[in-house]
């Protein structure tokens, strides 16, 4: 007790200054989260009082075919989209790291898509580009290929969204670029003297030394991709169509909560997503010991 008292006496001013943000954290984040955790165990339609139903919402998830479909769609989006985006970002970063002039200009230009890539305007633009009479099909028709309507075809719709994700490679590229700058230049010099090919240099020197950056980008990318919402909502007009092929997890959650009035179910979905992201992140962290090398 005495210890606590002296701790408080020494530090109360610090906490006083922290208070505005603590209050914000509690009222704007912690309380809503707590409420949603409670709602996830209830039947709640947002208009009338919630009724306790225990774990029903959670057990229902696994017999809900549409939910399983949304999990499948989201996993494809994450597992294909994130690696491709990172590969592309690393590729561009490597090019920019070749010591070309006007680097800062290029870096800024390539970063631009990430700035507004998640916006509604871009999602609408995407609909136009990949539509039946869109830009892509016009280009294809020039070389004599008749394209399908990429957005309206259940087999291709999701991949147009993956392309959209890859296009927003700027943020991870900038971080890769910073990582590449950290690689000691003398390592390349001695490798060159030993006659190592550019690919050897990349795979044996660059890649191992930037694994901490890859690790960071991977974690952030996966967390972001699991929560993607806007592109699917705009491109499919909120339906997740055609044929649920773009029914992202968050989009289905939104439909359940806000168009079908099943807020309890939607809350359970949200907590399941949180759990899934936490597990995915934990797995990456656990394996990181095997493939991430920290210098020094």
């Amino acid at each position: 007790m005495g210890k606590f008292k002296s701790f408080w006496k020494d530090n109360w001013i610090g906490y006083l200054f922290l208070a505005p943000w603590m209050i914000g954290l509690v009222t704007l984040t912690a309380i809503p989260m707590g409420a949603s955790l409670y709602f996830s165990f209830t039947n709640y339609d947002m208009f009338s009082a919630p009724t306790w139903i225990g774990l029903d919402n959670y057990t229902q998830l696994f017999s809900d075919e549409k939910w399983l479909e949304s999990v499948r769609v989201t996993l494809i989006y994450v597992l294909i989209g994130v690696p491709l985006q990172l590969t592309f970002a690393l590729f561009i970063a490597t090019l920019l790291n070749k010591g070309i002039s006007g680097l800062s200009l290029y870096r800024a230009i390539y970063y631009v898509p990430s700035l507004f890539g998640g916006s509604v305007a871009i999602a609408i633009l995407w609909r136009q580009i990949f539509g039946g009479n869109g830009l892509i099909n016009n280009l294809l028709s020039n070389i004599g290929i008749e394209g399908t309507n990429w957005i309206s075809n259940p087999n291709t719709a999701l991949y147009t969204l993956i392309v959209l994700m890859i296009w927003q490679f700027g943020a991870s590229m900038v971080i890769f670029l910073a990582g590449l700058k950290q690689v000691p230049i003398e390592l390349y010099e001695s490798a060159k003297m030993d006659g190592a090919s550019p690919w050897k240099q990349f795979s044996k020197i660059t890649l191992p030394l930037i694994t901490p950056v890859v690790f960071f980008n991977l974690v952030m990318g996966i967390i972001g991709a699991f929560q993607a919402f806007t592109p699917a909502y705009i491109v499919s007009g909120g339906t997740g169509g055609p044929l649920n092929s773009t029914l992202f997890y968050t989009l289905y959650l939104y439909q359940k909560g806000f168009t079908q009035f099943s807020m309890g179910y939607a809350s359970a979905m949200a907590w399941f997503l949180l759990l899934a992201i936490a597990i995915a992140t934990a797995i990456i962290f656990a394996t990181s010991k095997k493939w991430v090398y920290y210098q020094g």
Partner: peptide, 9 residues
């Protein structure tokens, strides 16, 4: 179906 989807909304 794809054409219908394209003109939806």
């Amino acid at each position: 179906a794809a054409t219908s989807n394209e003109y939806e909304g």
